[in-house]
């Protein structure tokens, strides 16, 4: 099928199979390797992207669902060479270890902050419940989201 959609603010037109998974389109057709596959069944959250501003699993979506939609991947967060406040906060708060969950974790947090710019710890924990981090106990990640919310201001 012919797929026309917006990825990281850019219009993209592709010829793909209607049942091709969004994660494969992003990685194989568009070379956006920041989106990671951890389980392929919507359990780990590593492949989370923003679809029209909401956090979703890109491993559970297929091309047929995508025409006209807006997708943001981790590569789309940096604006004019500046990291998104969430990205900076994850670095500053030492919220990165193996990094495999990081893109998905940041995008789930991004969806939360777009909807709720000043979340409580409980709200952050709930918003990140679909993203597994095996390295940390989530402490630094939660702190990073709190910091981005506090310091991000209009950049979020």
């Amino acid at each position: 099928m012919r797929l026309e959609f917006i990825v990281n603010d850019k219009k993209r037109v592709l010829e793909v199979a209607a049942d091709k998974r969004l994660i494969d389109i992003l990685r194989e057709d568009l070379g956006l390797m920041g989106t990671k596959e951890g389980c392929g069944e919507g359990e780990c959250g590593a492949c989370t992207i923003l679809l029209d501003g909401k956090a979703v699993h890109s491993c559970l979506l297929v091309a047929a669902q995508m025409p006209g939609r807006q997708v943001t991947t981790i590569e789309g967060l940096e604006k004019n060479g500046r990291l998104d406040p969430l990205q900076s906060a994850f670095v500053e708060e030492v919220a990165i270890q193996c990094g495999y969950c990081t893109p998905g974790m940041i995008l789930s947090a991004k969806a939360l902050l777009l909807e709720n710019p000043a979340p409580t710890e409980t709200e952050i924990r709930r918003a990140l419940a679909g993203n597994i981090c095996r390295c940390s106990g989530y402490t630094q990640i939660i702190r990073a989201v709190e910091r981005a919310a506090r310091e991000g201001g209009a950049d979020i």
């Binding site: 990685r27 956006l32 390797m33 920041g34 989106t35 990671k36 596959e37 991947t73 981790i74 590569e75 940096e78 990291l83 990205q87 900076s88 994850f90 670095v91 500053e92 030492v94 990165i96 270890q97 990094g99 495999y100 990081t102 893109p103 940041i106």
Partner: peptide, 21 residues
């Protein structure tokens, strides 16, 4: 003194290269 790990910036940008990439 606490420091972010060496490739933290690459990892938040999504451009750390894992074998699958």
């Amino acid at each position: 003194v606490s420091h972010p790990i060496h490739d933290a910036e690459a990892k938040v940008r999504g451009n750390a290269i894992y074998t699958g990439d």
